[in-house]
Nucleic acid binder design. Structure first.
Lengths: 153, 153
DNA sequence: GCATAATTGGACCGAAACAGTACTGTTTCC
DNA sequence: GGAAACAGTACTGTTTCGGTCCAATTATGC
């Protein structure tokens, strides 16, 4: 349902929390601080470490630390790190679309993907922490939007 | 992986094809026309009928017809019809986020959802049919984009 | 008016992906 | 040398998705 995985949600929470501390932080501490179960937060941090979003320090007195300031990490980066590349359909870039010849709309999904990526790249973790939204997004509303369905029809 | 279901992809293809015909069209005809398996296209049309996107005519000589012109149906509408509401996280509008008190970012995901919805609502099925893109989206690239990751970090 | 055929409507089931957990190994500090 | 913490792998339960089948409905032809 166009819903990103819960792991990504956890990742954002953990990263924002991590950005509020200067020293290295361990998984258990982060777990208590965020309310996310220990094994899960450990798994998330592990993935983020492999993607270079956080740096890890092994051994006693080890832990995790942000590799970049919050302002330089976009939502799109986190999503791609956890969930993989952002592409709405499998019918892109040589996918196995068996109806390619008849479907008619060749790579029209690419522009949709680009729109999504664009919107997600414009929001950083710092924007998530602060409750103010930068106006880089055209027509973006304030956090508490009317809530009605955005159906155009 | 922020990927919408194949059903939605099928729905768009079927709707665009349906928009090219005036008279009512049956599932088998649409299946042959699009290359989508018969049962699947039937299921998609069924869902779209319940959502009011297409009108159905039961019985012999029945079939489906578009309820609105292609220009008035946005991608967001189709996605919401098939996949359900567009909300990236479960932690919105009274969701069961058990870490609400500690996570810190109350409804910050809402602005992300709004951005997505915005981008998706700006693209109509007519845009998918024609290979030209209207410039309603700020910074949207042409269909064949470079393809590099949109990571900001 | 009745039988028949065509088509949608709703329910069901198997398969795949995901979230979460546990365990073992490696590294570093005390 | 012992303890603490990350790294990697494997496993299991759950949910969701994709696909299929059968029942309800309506127009047509006799």
């Amino acid at each position: 349902m166009l819903k990103l995985s819960k792991l990504t949600d956890y990742a954002v929470v953990a990263l924002v929390r991590l950005g509020q501390k200067e020293e290295v932080t361990t998984s258990p501490v982060l777990s208590r601080s965020t309310g996310i179960p220990e094994p899960t937060v450990a798994k998330v941090l592990k993935i983020l470490a492999t993607q270079g979003i956080v740096t890890s320090q092994r051994g006693a007195r080890g832990g995790y630390r942000l590799a970049h300031p919050l302002e330089e990490i976009s939502i799109a980066t986190v999503i791609q790190a956890i969930d993989g590349p952002i592409s709405l359909t499998t019918c892109v870039d040589g996918g196995d679309c068996d109806a390619r010849s008849t479907c008619g709309l060749g790579g029209q999904w690419d522009m949709v993907n680009a729109a999504i990526r664009n919107a997600l790249s414009a929001i950083t973790l710092a924007d998530m922490k602060n409750h103010t939204v930068t106006d880089r997004l055209g027509g973006l509303r304030t956090p508490s939007m009317p809530g009605g369905p955005a159906a155009t029809a």
